[in-house]
């Protein structure tokens, strides 16, 4: 029976990374980067979410079937967001 115990070092490392990324996203938000503000904020949020999913939620060490369900849920979210937004963005064209 193999239970994968994630080493404590990884948990604390992920926590530190999440804290640093939170500080960075707040600091960057005060600077005017034009449309890049949103891009940077969302990139940092996606990175933080990926760290939580892979390590806190153990997906990195999970069976392929679990990985498929996780990837599938975000694929469906992507379809929901991208197809709807492509409609709204292109209405004025």
């Amino acid at each position: 029976m193999s239970i994968h115990v994630v080493p404590l070092k990884i948990y604390f490392g992920v926590f530190a990374s999440l804290m640093i990324l939170t500080a960075v996203t707040v600091a960057v938000a005060y600077r005017d980067l034009g449309p890049l503000n949103t891009v940077v904020a969302l990139s940092i949020a996606v990175t933080k979410a990926a760290l939580v999913i892979l390590y806190f939620m153990h997906v990195r060490y999970s069976p392929s079937l679990t990985k498929l369900v996780v990837a599938g849920s975000f694929l469906w979210l992507f379809i929901l967001l991208s197809i709807t937004m492509s409609d709204y963005v292109s209405r004025a064209w």
Partner: peptide, 8 residues
């Protein structure tokens, strides 16, 4: 985020 660490 701290509560996620304590949960982990």
């Amino acid at each position: 985020i701290a509560s996620s660490l304590t949960m982990a």
